[in-house]
Design a binder for these strands. Sequence first.
RNA 1: GGGCGAUUAGCUCAGUUGGUUCAGAGCACCUGUCUUACAAACAGGGGGUCAAUGGUUCGAAUCCAUUAUCGCCCA
Length: 883
Amino acid sequence: MSSELKPNFSHSEIEAKWYAHWLDKNYFHSEPDDREPFTIVIPPPNVTGVLHMGHMLNNTIQDILIRKARLDGKNACWVPGTDHASIATEAKVVKWLREEKGLRKSDLKREEFMAYAMNWKEKYGGIILTQLRRLGASCDWQRTAFTMDEIRSRHVIKAFVDLYRKGLLYRDYRMINWDPKAKTVLSNEEVIYREEQSKLVHILYPFADGSPGGITIATQRPETIMADTAVAVNPNDERYSDIVGRKVRIPLIDKEIPIIADEAVEIEFGTGALKITPAHAPEDYEIGKRHGLEVVNIIDETGHINEAGQILVGEDRFDARKKIIKMLADSGHLVKLEDYTTNIGRSERTDVIVEPRLSLQWYVNMKHLGEKALHAVTSGDVKFVPPRYKNIYRHWLENIQDWCISRQLWWGHRIPAWYYGDEVFVAMTAEEALAQAKEKTGNPALTLDDLKQDEDVLDTWFSSWLWPISVFDGFGGSRDFDYYYPTSVLVTGWDIIFLWVARMIMAGYEWYDQKPFHTVYFTGMVRDKQRRKMSKSLGNSPDALALIDQYGADGVRYGLLSASPAGGDLLFDVKLCEQGRNFCNKIWNGLRLVKSWKTTDTPQPDVNRLAHRWFRQQFNRILNQLDADFRQFRLSEALVKLYSFIWTDFFSWYLEIIKPPYGEPIDATTHAQATALFSELMIVLHPFMPFITEEVWHRITDRADGDDCTVSRWPGGGTYDEAFLRRIELAKDIIGKVRDIRNKHGIKMREPLHLMAGQSDETEALMAEEGLVPLIKKMAVLSDFERVPAEPDKGHVRFISGASPFYIPLEQAVDTAAQLAKLEEELKYAEGFVQSVQKKLANERFVANAPEAVVNRERKKLEDGLARVRHLRDAIAALKKEA
RNA sequence: GGGCGAUUAGCUCAGUUGGUUCAGAGCACCUGUCUUACAAACAGGGGGUCAAUGGUUCGAAUCCAUUAUCGCCCA
């Protein structure tokens, strides 16, 4: 049997096999039943996206939680799906049309474009869901949803209509964030501010009446001077008090504008004088409104200067900036150029600098929606892991602004608003809108052709915020929805806490007065070793699939998770995946070892019985800890714990203890126990590393059809005896010290040693433990292990373990000096320890105030410590006498 | 400007309610090893004034205050 198993684990041969098997058995599909549900909705990746490190981390965590819930016997349901990602996808389709078909969007009718886009999506979209299978994601694929499919679209339109009827939607003409590349408005949350280098340009605006001088303003945007309609100073700024009210000329175009005074102008900034460009800066727009200034728009929707600019018409805004600085210098109006760092807002999707722009858009009133959403989190109804994100969330909601939801795109949900003259009709369908229009106007002759539907689509997040509801067809009132909602956990990155998480909570309370999920687990960002965020442009992100090919899905999952505390950033290093792969190999070889044993009907030796007792109890202890870890979402800790438990306790200790000499059989009882323990370990590790655990599960013993690791039951814990476990720890310490002595003296493992233990209660208890003496003899390779009444005369080394002395006679020369140094160091430590305990116990207030258990513990510590010190002193004295 | 968080070994990080020999893990490093499951391994080892100062307490890596440095969110 064992001859089938290669020395190295090969993940590529098993991953596809088991994934297909799980699908074949339909294990991932969930239907409502009597069991407790455990539900996760996937943060839908962009339909055009490909798997990257962030997805891998995110989905590994979800899969761990789902698989654990499945093993716990819950009805686990993980709903996958994709997001239509309006801006990103439309950009990709436009590019594809241009490059592959030679078509421009402007050449196409809306319907034509949508047909191409849908086609494109069918062909290239959703690749990422296939890639998730490689990772082992146990999603219920039959429930795959798409934000633009029929059901989800219905939810979006219904939500819009409903909010409109409730008076929570409105249209307004105001300053918005414009993305000149995508040619659409963005919400505040889609603008990313970063500090960037810029120039502050000082420009002289001469007096209009021709008198000498003028006023020097400072601006970052010299290319917009043509749109200026005033220069403003602070009314309290004495430098300018006598020229307020006078007129100046805009250089280059010689337009006359007034100098006005407004409190909003910062005296300290620049020259204290601001050019006011109401069409192209939010603050200027406000100032302009206060002073009734004209609004001159000189930048078109693509970020180029338009006819109203008079000069530099058709130039890109940044080219225009360079040119105008040159022109100002030539005309003598440039006073100076100053280096300047400022916060620049860029589009989250296209990364171009956002252009403030006035336009008419749809908004959601957030005041109303925000209140319950805030309470949900502050009250703990929705739990955040880690909890510190509560503060960030609260801060945002307390300062919330209305949500701009219209987008000037075609790919998305078209806004269900129809216009007839100045009237707006919002309805589920054009026919309903027509009916409304007929009633409102009293004109029954109106037809659909008289109504004009809004050209814009809705923000993608306006569909994502309904996701936990819409994937279960919640607005239809479904059995699924009743059963699965609220979902159990949401796993997502903290970067979309406002864009997505907060809004889902709002939607949940708005439509069902119910949270969408019990807990939000925030993952960190995956960064490289230099702490840089992984990105395509930096090229520092490893190819996710290549990683899986190289290290196996289990190895990569291990690597991602072992260093990924909740909410903390993960500094990714392929070394971690390598460690995961090595762990797989270790498990594989443990399997090979156990499979290689022949069994015999002989009775179980004491040492094996002891080994099992010890490991069982240790396992119980770990199971308790794992329970706590899962409850608190400390997944990384749980995995690290399991890693060392399996590697060290199971392989390095348990299997080594029970391992029969080469070629000899093992007693059947021990073999059965080892097989059972191995299987249990595979269940416990399964959520983290599903593939290898399933493989080992099936190889370790014969299984009936359907007896798969992935659908087995998580083992229940049990009791353990602390005193017993401590005795074993002591034994392990003794073994370690013997090995150290071998190391130091160059004694090979095949040379058995003779170990003598000094008299103490401790050694007495130790040797009375059935099986422990043979255990120590086996693991330390001893010919003999016995207690002696006193230290032997000469020719031996000594060490202290616990509070007892041990001696090993040696044939070879003993390195007295080295031993002495080591013992003296240990003595120093032990004395310091004893001193600190003594000090504590001498303190009356400690003895009086501390709990009795704590005081007793200290007394025991003192007793042991004193014994240890005594033995160390004896040993040192003896050693000195020898020298 | 408002807020949040962090600072523990060379690196990345645990350390749960303040109390068990509590100063830990992994990686890295050093020494040794074909000990026939595994060199992707095995057996050992060295390494930290827990950022600084002060306070609370019988007792502080842990709680409080101040300072320093760094990171992030919002404006």
